[in-house]
Amino acid sequence: EMEYEEITLERGNSGLGFSIAGGTDNPHIGDDPSIFITKIIPGGAAAQDGRLRVNDSILFVNEVDVREVTHSAAVEALKEAGSIVRLYVMRRKP
């Protein structure tokens, strides 16, 4: 069973403070093209906020749908998102 969360982060000097993997051209798990959080960087915006978790998958960055995009398109969406970034994420319920 999945749960969904909308997380708004303010981009810090060091960016959003997380790493991603995945994409249609580089699936992270099997042939699932989802964009997954692979690392939360200590002291970064995501770590300070505390809600984003490793293995969360990002569905939307602001209004941009990143469910079926290449890795570089997801990176671009995050880069272009401005200083306030709304992430709509999905994760397995614990």
Rank of each mutant, 00 (worst) to 15 (best):
N26G: 14
I35S: 03
I37S: 02
F18H: 00
S14P: 05
N62M: 03
M90D: 14
G30D: 08
P94V: 15
H71G: 13
G22H: 10
N13Y: 04
T24A: 11
I40V: 15
A77S: 11
T24V: 10
G30F: 04
R51T: 14
N62P: 00
F60R: 15
T8Y: 02
L16D: 13
H71T: 07
V85H: 03
R92E: 10
V66M: 06
E68H: 03
R53V: 02
S83A: 08
M2N: 03
H71Q: 03
S14W: 13
F36A: 08
R51I: 15
I40P: 01
G44D: 05
G82T: 15
E63F: 06
K39E: 03
A46I: 10
M90N: 15
N62S: 14
N26Q: 12
S57N: 12
I29F: 14
L87C: 02
N62K: 05
I29N: 13
A47H: 15
L9M: 10
R92M: 11
G17A: 05
I41D: 02
F60I: 08
S83I: 15
V85S: 09
V75I: 14
A47D: 13
G17K: 15
A46G: 11
G22Y: 14
L78Q: 03
A21T: 09
E1G: 02
D32P: 10
V69K: 12
M2Y: 02
D65K: 15
I40R: 07
L59T: 14
A45R: 04
S34Y: 10
T24I: 06
E10K: 04
G44H: 05
M90G: 14
T70V: 06
V85Q: 01
G12R: 04
E76G: 13
L87A: 01
G50H: 09
D56H: 02
R91Q: 12
V54C: 07
D25I: 05
A74W: 07
G43Q: 06
D49W: 03
I35L: 11
E3K: 13
I20D: 00
E1Q: 00
K93I: 01
L87V: 09
F18W: 02
Q48D: 03
P27W: 03
P27S: 09
L78V: 12
S34N: 15
L87Y: 01
E80D: 15
V64T: 06
